[in-house]
Every structure is written in structure tokens, then in C-alpha cells.
Amino acid sequence: MKVLIAQDESECSKTALESVLSRTWPENSQFRLVNVHEPIHGYDPVIYTPHSIVSLKEADKEIYAAKEAQLKKSLDLLKAKFNDFEVCGEVLTGHPKDCIIDDAESWGADLIVVGTHSRKGFARAFLGSVASEVASQADCSVEIVRERKH
């Protein structure tokens, strides 16, 4: 069983990781953690001065570093809990939905686990867009984990 966990900074992706950690998985399972970094686009010279482009690029780097730190922390959690299983992870750069689907395909995932917000009332009709796109476009099975209700 190859399980790909998509992660970002949201609460719901923490819930998704916890949900994976809380289960007993079949023997020879493998886990892969993916955190997608979406670079800041639109370095338009008309809008941005050369100075602000530099600060945007710096912000980009900071976000990337934060993602790597978060990934490492989560990987440590996974490795500690699933010491019998193979665990790997990577920060990818690109559009989240495309990166997750392509990575799942190339790695050969059986299941993608992705978190989504749990909203009430009218807003609830709109599933998180990455979660819903992954669910509708991936070839393998997809588990959508919801943020716990309080």
C-alpha cells in the first residue's frame, strides 16, 4: 500500500497527517509526504520596482525554507510512528494540484490523503479547491480528511 500525503500550512492538513498516524496500516506500506511550494508569480516590471522584486524573491525563499522545515518535522513524526515502513518526502515547486497528481502517478501511489476545511452553511458547498481537484482528477483513490469540528 503506497500512501501519498499532501501537506500545506493549514490546520486540516495536520488533521490529515494525524489521521494517517492513528491507523494501523497493512504490512509493506510506504508513505510519501509532499508539500508544494507555489512561487509568487507576476514579477511585472511596471508594478514592481527592482527592489520589490528582490524582496518578493526573498519572501519566496523564506516560504520554501519554512515548507522544508515543516516537511522535516512531519517526516520525523511519520518515521517515529512507522519505523517498520518506508517513509520519504519532498518539497515540490509548481501548481499544488498538478504537482500532487503528477507525483502520485510517478511514485505509483495507491491512495492520496489530502485535508480540506470544514465550513458550515453556504460556504460548505465549496470544498477546498485543491482537495476537490485532486479528488476529481487523480487516477488513484483519494481520501479527503476534514478539519475536526469544535
Binding site: 495507491d110 487523480a138 483513490s141 479527503i144
Partner: peptide, 20 residues
Amino acid sequence: VLSHADCAVTIVKAQQVFQN
């Protein structure tokens, strides 16, 4: 079901083949 459920939902695809 996916949009309105309060709990987690797994969509099993027809294309599902266990890789290993």
C-alpha cells in the same frame, strides 16, 4: 457526498490498481 460530508471521505477510483 464529498462536498457535504462532516467526516472524511475516500473516493475509490475505477482505475485503482494496487501497484505492489
